[in-house]
């Protein structure tokens, strides 16, 4: 079993196939949708965790390419250097996914990695420079 985090980008009006249905049905994948921004006449974006057998994942991505859908697999991960964090909350102002939030009892920052879209906004916003990336640059595959 392998798990990847991936963003699909659809050209405007190109969705002929019910993407998630096919991925589940034909390739036996488990999907966890993290964010979806799909609307008419615009490039759509769908970010999710995809889990399944390695050969199935590969086959699924081959199939996706043939549908004219591009995608980006996240190879990086956002790293939170908790020791240096002052728990100010400035990063929560920009986090689009709710991955970063302040616990309203302790007022400490909490980071829910599962929800992270690796948009990198917090990395630029954190005044203390305690958010960073590890791993290689995300590769754009079309």
């Amino acid at each position: 079993m392998k798990k990847i985090k991936i963003t699909f980008e659809f050209p405007p009006n190109s969705i002929k196939q019910p993407l998630t249905y096919r991925l589940i049905k034909d390739f036996d994948l488990m999907l966890n949708i993290l964010s979806a921004d799909v609307s008419l006449n615009r490039t759509g974006r769908l970010t999710m965790d995809m889990q399944g057998e390695e050969d199935m994942l590969e086959a699924a991505l081959d199939w996706v390419k043939k549908q004219g859908i591009s995608f980006k697999i996240f190879e990086k991960e956002v790293i939170w250097n908790e020791d240096k964090c002052i728990h100010c909350g400035a990063c929560t102002a920009v986090c689009p996914s709710g991955a970063l939030s302040l616990d309203n009892e302790t007022w400490k920052l909490t980071f829910d990695r599962e929800k992270c879209l690796i948009c990198e906004l917090c990395i630029q916003t954190c005044p203390l420079g305690v958010m960073g990336l590890n791993g290689d640059n995300a590769s754009l595959d079309t």
Binding site: I86, G89, A90, T92, N104, W107
Partner: peptide
């Protein structure tokens, strides 16, 4: 963490560390 501004829910964030 949220207030309503012009009828829309808007997220709020501190810059001062309460912790």
């Amino acid at each position: 963490g949220q207030i309503s501004l012009f009828g829309k829910k808007v997220s709020t964030a501190p810059l001062t560390s309460l912790y």
